[in-house]
Design a protein around this nucleic acid. Structure first.
Length: 322
DNA sequence: CATGCGTGGTT
DNA sequence: TAACCAAGCAT
């Protein structure tokens, strides 16, 4: 592409951003790398609205600095992350805080080595916190580039090269924020508004009137069935902290495959996840073998729980077990 | 490179 | 309203 046309695109983009960009986002009003880092991790696969309205401010109030985060117990961090999903993010945050305190590294190479910081997040921190000329490469940017160059199945390297070419190296901060805003407000998945798009003059998708870029692969969503066993004693229930990758660090109940026939069926809880639908029958055993770690309703309120387990708790309250 | 990982918004 | 998917990362 001609340098001249790229410069024209930058001007159009800059003009659009000045008028319509989301300038009210709080992480665009800080120079603190820690604040920007927290926003980037929260925003991974998570909508701006959720982060903005429910998590960003409370988290920073509770953990106002990298050192404060490092010194907090992991369980407190998990509790602050409750409901946000992808819980290894919370574990990685805590780990990074301890590894990097009192301040984050300032280069892409050192950032990308930290757990939970991939290439996109490292680029974003460099561009937004340190004003370095790196191109972010998240879902919005991928969609925009795929459409501009009509790439149905783009390769990672190919997209990165195109992103690097289009980047405004003089203004990496505004450029990256602007292209993400274009993705979420103009070049949307379902109904792109080419009339106001700064990239319209060079966009092949617009020319072809085909916006299915990159090509979506459809998958069937399986159902995962489960049996949850509740052991209770004196208005308290046995709970344990998960260790696997799924719902890592959150507190929950035991699953079982057999031996529940003689117990009391309480009800079924369901939860839809991206890759499967979860459906669990909940049984109650009031003659528990577990000896320790029974939690009362008040104690459970202090633990980090998943959506499913919150539904189970409601079922227990309804059955007057808690 | 494909898959697993949470939850809630949007259409 | 079922389906898609959002400021991705690790394996």
């Amino acid at each position: 592409m001609q340098k001249k046309s790229i410069k024209q695109i930058h001007q159009k983009l800059h003009h659009w951003y000045a008028q319509y960009g989301r300038h009210d986002l709080p992480w665009r009003h800080t120079e603190d790398p820690y604040h920007i880092y927290i926003s980037e991790i929260m925003l991974q696969q998570t909508q701006v609205k959720t982060v903005l309205e429910r998590y960003y401010f409370p988290f920073l109030e509770q953990f106002p600095s990298l050192t404060a985060l490092a010194n907090a117990p992991l369980d407190e961090v998990l509790k602050a992350w409750e409901g946000l999903g992808y819980y290894t993010r919370a574990k990685n945050l805590h780990h990074c805080a301890n590894a990097a305190k009192p301040t984050l590294p300032t280069t892409f190479d050192s950032l990308v080595q930290l757990p939970g910081i991939g290439e996109n997040t490292a680029s974003a921190i460099c561009a937004f916190a340190y004003k370095q000329p790196l191109a972010v490469m998240e879902a919005n940017v991928k969609r925009i580039l795929s459409r501009i160059f009509a790439l149905k199945t783009p390769q990672k390297v190919q997209l990165q090269q195109l992103a690097n070419q289009l980047l405004d190296k003089e203004n990496p901060y505004d450029y990256n924020q602007a292209i993400m805003d274009i993705g979420s407000m103009v070049c949307t998945v379902k109904s792109p508004d080419c009339a106001v798009c700064p990239y319209a003059s060079i966009c092949l998708a617009r020319e072809q009137n085909d916006f299915d870029y990159p090509e979506k692969k459809k998958k069937t969503v399986p159902t995962r069935e489960d049996i949850i066993m509740i052991e209770s004693q004196d208005n308290a229930v046995y709970m344990r902290q998960r260790e696997g990758k799924f719902l890592h660090g959150l507190w929950g109940f035991e699953s079982m495959k057999e031996g529940y026939e003689e117990m009391t069926y309480l009800g079924t809880v369901t939860q839809s996840y991206t890759h499967f639908t979860y459906k669990a029958k909940v049984y109650h055993d009031n003659a528990p073998k577990q000896k320790d770690r029974f939690f009362t309703k008040k104690e459970i309120a202090q633990l980090a729980l998943s959506g499913v387990d919150k539904k189970v708790i409601k079922l227990l309250e309804k059955n007057k077990i808690l």
